[in-house]
Simulated scan of single mutants.
Amino acid sequence: MSWEDDRRVRDFRDCAAGPDGVRMKAGGPVAGGVVGRQPEVGMEKAILVGVDGSAEALDAVAWAADEAARRHCRLLVVNAYVMPRAEAAFGWSPEAIKEDAASVIRAARERAQEVAPGLAVDDAVIVDSPVSALLRKARDAAMVVVGLRGRGGFPGLRIGSVSYRLAAHSPVPTVVVPGVVPLGDTEVVVGVSGDHRAAPVLAEAFAAAAASSKRLRAVRAWSEPILPSPEMRPLLYDPDEVRGSHARELAEALRPWEERYPDVTVVRDVVEGQPSVVLAEAGRAARLIVVGARGGRGITRPALGGAAHGLLHNASRPVMVVPVQ
């Protein structure tokens, strides 16, 4: 087991499925101190999963381990905590806190091996806030996976603050797993916007589909213009023409990715409605729903965007939030 302070990082390279579902290597060593178990030369980037001892975290481990096995890459399990102040009246001893962290890691490793026997698993315990630790580790990971909620937080909220903030600010895709979900080969669903930001989202969606069912459902949601008065109609507005325009744009956005991933079967859906509602419905039986977010620094809600925000609060299947600019 690796114990780290709040500045050390580990060296990983890229983990992603290529056009044939084959691993693709990219990048090189990153700066920073290396601690604990050492990765092999040429290792690809790991899938990072955050754990805190909750049942939801173990559900996230199960999904992450299955995905890592499909993509032939390693799994990195991270537990992060803030050491209580010495004057805390009911604080645990440092020894008790370390033992709790060790037991959290052991349970996560056992769950990963149950799902994917023989999977290469690394681990780290970091003394830092969970958000800070996971955001820093995410820089060197293929993706970060977390449960919908953890052990703390406010009762009644569907999504915890750690998962929400990671999805909004992570430099790599964040997958939020909403409890126990099937791990079978069902289709991947992706929301496709009408601008250049669709490219990184489609890259992740096709890679995920290539590593699993090789079936992808690409969804373009659209709605009528919002006007000041319900009696007003835009000049020359034809719903069929608008729908056809969206269908052509969707086909154009998908074309280069379909050429790159010829083994992935793509279904195109152009649906009238709010994106988060349309995608949640389309993904009710999906292995994964992929959506873009603006990402970066700043206030969490604007950084996440409306579609991703809505999905995280309503989807019944894992949601991958891809940072786009």
Rank of each mutant, 00 (worst) to 15 (best):
L279C: 04
A293Y: 02
V145C: 06
L119V: 00
S316A: 13
L311C: 00
P171F: 12
K214D: 14
G53F: 07
D123T: 03
A64F: 08
G184R: 06
A315H: 06
S229E: 11
V291S: 04
S223E: 15
A138I: 13
D263F: 02
P230S: 04
E231G: 11
V192K: 12
P318W: 12
R297N: 14
A308F: 04
H246A: 07
A108K: 02
C15W: 11
A253R: 11
E272S: 14
S129E: 13
Q325L: 14
W92Q: 05
R301M: 13
R317H: 07
F206N: 05
S161N: 05
E40K: 07
A198C: 12
D6G: 15
S223T: 12
P200A: 10
R220C: 10
Q274Y: 09
N314G: 04
M83Q: 15
E224F: 07
P130E: 14
I299M: 10
G118V: 01
V145R: 13
A167L: 08
R10D: 03
L58H: 08
V242S: 04
D269C: 06
E204L: 09
V266Q: 06
T174R: 13
I47M: 04
E44N: 10
Q38D: 05
Q274N: 10
A46E: 12
R13Y: 14
A218N: 04
L279R: 01
S129A: 13
E114Q: 07
V162F: 02
G306S: 15
R136V: 08
T265E: 15
R297D: 12
R106K: 12
V242Y: 08
A31I: 11
N79R: 08
C15L: 04
V146A: 10
V177H: 10
P200M: 12
G310T: 01
A133V: 00
A141G: 04
E231L: 12
D123A: 03
V115M: 06
I289T: 14
D52S: 06
A124E: 06
A60T: 01
